[in-house]
Computed example of a mutant assay.
Amino acid sequence: MSIHSWKINLAEWLLLKVKYPSQFVMGTNRIQAAAHKKKIILTLLPSHDNLGDHAIAYASKAFIEREYPEFDVIEVDMKDIYKSAKALMRLRHPEDMVFMIGGGNMGDLYRYEEWTRRFVIKAFRDYKIVQLPATSHFSDTKKGRKELKRAKKIYNAHPDLLLMARDETTYQFMKRHFTDKPVLKQPDMVLYLDKSEHRAEREGVYICLREDQESALGEEHRHRLKDALAGEFGDIKSFTTTIGRRVDRTSREEELESLWSKLQGAEAVVTDRLHGMIFCALTGTPCVVIRSFDHKVMEGYDWLKSIPAMKLIEHPEPEMVTAAVKDLLTKGTHDSGFPRDQYFKGLRNKISGEGK
Rank of each mutant, 00 (worst) to 15 (best):
I351T: 10
A165Y: 01
T271G: 09
Q131F: 03
P21R: 03
Q172T: 15
D235N: 04
F124Q: 02
L282H: 02
V98M: 07
K305R: 11
T116H: 00
T322M: 13
L51H: 13
G276Y: 00
L312K: 04
K149I: 13
R145Q: 06
H334I: 13
M164Q: 14
L109Q: 10
P69F: 08
V205S: 08
K356D: 12
D272C: 12
S261T: 13
I40L: 11
L217A: 13
R176H: 05
G231E: 10
I129L: 06
P133W: 00
P94M: 08
R224F: 12
D194G: 05
L15Q: 08
K305Y: 05
A85P: 00
F178Q: 09
D302G: 05
R199G: 15
I129R: 00
S261K: 06
F293I: 14
V183K: 05
T170K: 02
L184C: 12
E197P: 01
Y68H: 09
I278K: 00
K262Q: 07
T116E: 02
K181Y: 01
Y192N: 04
L148M: 07
H137D: 07
L209Q: 11
K122Y: 05
G27A: 13
C280V: 11
S292D: 14
E253W: 03
G234T: 10
F71I: 09
F344R: 02
S196M: 06
A157L: 09
E70W: 10
T179Q: 11
S139Y: 00
E197C: 11
F138V: 12
A87E: 10
Y20N: 05
I41W: 03
E299R: 00
D341W: 08
E211V: 15
I313N: 06
L51G: 15
E113T: 12
V76R: 01
G300N: 08
L42T: 07
R252H: 07
S136F: 07
K326R: 13
